[in-house]
Design a protein around this nucleic acid. Structure first.
Lengths: 85, 85
DNA sequence: GGACTAAGATAATCTTAGCAG
DNA sequence: CTGCTAAGATTATCTTAGTCC
């Protein structure tokens, strides 16, 4: 998918979608939180994934919603063991 | 902790920390990503936690770094079962 | 068509100067 | 002291108009 099309699908004005997306990707400008959410929705990535600097946690965030109900509950049971600290 | 002190500990100019923090908390203005990261560091909360709308995933994000090494690997093993999809 | 950039137009935040509880 | 706000100063992004491959 081109930069321009990604911006268009995120709801940008088609006439400026290309430079906007390019400014984001090149780091010239930074999208605000609302724009980040729209781009993530188009890309099918959880927003939290972008704000994670721990590679292991990033893997969990990216895949948590894809595991089965039983496995999700197993994970929750594990993390809940530290709830009382 | 007061709004002002939180801003100061995040590195804001002390003379404007109070109104800035208040504008954030009341939703008048929105902090950029760098500012969010600093505030989260002061508050001891992972940045990813703020951008998570799934309560279950939020629990995992908040506690993942606190579980032991063995449990972290157990969790990673579970989420990696969906890596090939 | 696609990636990319400069520069002015536009819109946001940040700072100052306060008030109310 | 703490929470909060208006308004101008400041700084950011967004749009336009292009180039280059």
């Amino acid at each position: 998918m081109s930069q321009k099309q990604l911006g268009i699908e995120a709801g940008f004005d088609p006439s400026s979608a290309s430079p906007r997306m390019n400014q984001y990707e090149k780091g010239k400008h930074h999208p605000d939180a609302t724009t980040v959410a729209k781009l993530c929705e188009v890309l099918g990535v959880p927003v939290a994934y972008l704000y994670c600097d721990d590679d292991d946690l990033a893997r969990v965030i990216a895949n948590f919603s894809k595991v089965g109900e039983k496995d999700r509950k197993r994970i929750l049971a594990i993390v809940d063991t530290v709830k009382q600290s």
